[in-house]
Nucleic acid binder design. Structure first.
Lengths: 329, 329
DNA sequence: AACTATTTGGAAAGCGCTTTCTAAATCGCT
DNA sequence: AGCGATTTAGAAAGCGCTTTCCAAATAGTT
């Protein structure tokens, strides 16, 4: 059991004071070249590694960022994490990740825990109230939300309204008459998507029809098929809140003997890596999840390093990827 | 900008010393009921939250666990994380997650970073050498590996050899004659799977044939189809290192006009959530990823709390899930 | 009532690093 | 050679909490 080396021992080895070692290591103050050399030599000889917590306690900064995601099984969030990691590394930060498991109580705990360990937090897919999130944000411990717009809180979002308008219009263009929207949880993203959907349908003179998913995942999609089944008349197109739900729905429809897209087209929002590999492959509005992660980190680091600047909300756009699940006529 | 409350101010408010507050909060030493009440009252009045880093610096323990996973886009690892989170919470630990992005250099950095922040680490799908990992393990900072058996390092693994033997035997039983194994990276898991595969084929009097995936993911699977294409004679079954590769392969075969399972059966190891939703649905040896995460945390916490005990390697078993991709004859 | 055992709570020494402040040493000029 | 300007490096005061040790107060016992 070798005890970790402390700065004191390095100082001794190099024949200088601990303060000097600290300054050399952090480049805080120039020292004579000879002194610096002795310090570096001692450091590598003893294999010195500064105690992180002492450092943080002393400086008040951890050079770590926290990300709390709604559900690690959802590819949207994992792609987002992928994007965040790279940018964070470039900017000299470590990313600490936590999975809220779609549970607000757990989310609160994780936020507390990560907050104590990091300089700032990214909330992707939060289930907290706007109030709760707004309270958390402060210049010293900034919060960046992804997929949620809250007054006073910096955010990175997709223009969901336009994306949804475009997706619904696409279906209208294909000649669909009875377009159903399978809604997700009642947060910002869903509100925007629903609004875009309704507007598109009204513009086309069609009647919006909204059903709520029991959950925004495979299971929710599977369960939705039961609801669809009872609908009279049967819809000729379904827009799903996310691609997980669409995949569940399509699987379930197949067992019910309903053919996609011949009897009903199925489209969704998302960027599931298998969307193109399914049969039928899935038409979706591609959400740039990875890019959202990159931008969120960029924004957060900006807030940490230029605290004075008022950040503008960052907005990205989704791209329509037509595939077989909407290949009609 | 409200400065966080310090223990000193709580002490003042309650009319006691900081040491007393600490003891009450941590239940380290019994105090008179009246005193405890005053302390609790002061704490909630001021909204006191102990500074984590001061605490860690002082006690030397962080009550956090680190998990480094190979690739957050791979469902095997995300399921594993899901399992770990719950158990960790039960045992009073926070999980800090990091994604190595299949990059050994990055993995090393993340390990260093997490090591400094946690009491112990779980390495799931490491790309480091046995040497490197063995060096990291110590009673004070234990390491638990998942999917890797290294002398002296506690581990949680699946009996991959038996799983592979069983999977290959299943194909033999179906009458397959030319069974190809698409190998993953040359680490423990793949070695065991390849060994099981070879043994099963030799027992059946068949000739093993192994090709290596360029990467153990969708892309690797897609690229493998090109290799298959040139094979003479064409295999009648392919065992893929993981289900991601199988999915990529099947998609690619479809575009080449090769029918699965009629012309070639495709099976894999894994527990991809969509395995049953694809068409054809994918036969695999189901790896209990989530359970591995639960067990790894259990093992690690055990090591932290009963340092004297010598841990036994934990072994789990895979389950065969026959589906359409091997529905022959 | 006297004396020992037990509670109760404070003082203070860390934990390991950073950073300010200052003194000593060196340098550049005239 | 002498003086101010600049380097160079150490001393020491934190950062905020825990924990050991010890004294005072209280309870228990004969």
């Amino acid at each position: 059991m070798r005890k970790p080396v402390r700065i004191f021992e390095v100082a001794k080895e190099a024949g200088v004071s601990p303060g000097t070692v600290s300054k050399v290591l952090n480049g805080t103050q120039r020292m004579a070249a000879a002194t610096e050399a002795r310090v570096w030599k001692a450091v590598s000889k003893l294999g010195y590694q500064a105690n992180l917590h002492a450092q943080i306690l002393s400086t008040g900064r951890s050079r770590a960022l926290g990300i709390v995601i709604l559900d690690i099984l959802n590819p949207h969030f994992t792609a987002l994490v992928k994007g965040s990691g790279q940018v964070a590394t470039e900017r000299g930060y470590t990313v600490l990740l936590a999975d809220a498991e779609e549970n607000p109580k757990r989310e609160q705990e994780l936020i507390q825990s990560l907050r104590a360990r990091t300089d700032g937090l990214i909330l992707a897919g939060s289930r907290l109230t706007d109030q709760e999130i707004a309270c958390l944000h402060s210049p010293e411990q900034p919060i960046v939300t992804v997929g949620r717009r809250i007054a006073g809180v910096p955010s990175v979002t997709v223009d969901e309204y336009t994306a949804s308008l475009q997706l619904a219009s696409y279906l209208v263009g294909l000649g669909c008459q009875r377009i159903l929207y399978l809604a997700g949880p009642p947060f910002w993203v869903n509100q925007e998507r629903e609004r875009g959907y309704r507007n598109a349908l009204e513009q086309a003179g069609l009647t919006p029809q909204v059903l709520s998913l029991t959950s925004p995942d495979l299971l929710g999609g599977e369960q939705a098929s039961a609801l669809l089944w009872t609908m009279q008349p049967f819809p000729d197109a379904v827009i799903c809140y996310n691609d997980l739900a669409a995949i569940g729905l399509m699987a379930s429809l197949k067992t019910l003997g309903v053919r996609v897209p011949q009897e009903v087209a199925v489209v969704a929002f998302g960027n599931h890596p298998l969307a193109a590999h399914l049969s039928p492959s899935l038409t979706h509005m591609e959400i740039p999840s990875r890019r959202l992660g990159e931008l969120a980190v960029g924004l957060l680091v900006g807030l940490l390093e230029q605290p004075q600047e008022e950040p503008q909300p960052v907005i990205q756009y989704a791209v329509l990827r037509p595939r077989e699940s909407s290949r009609i006529g």
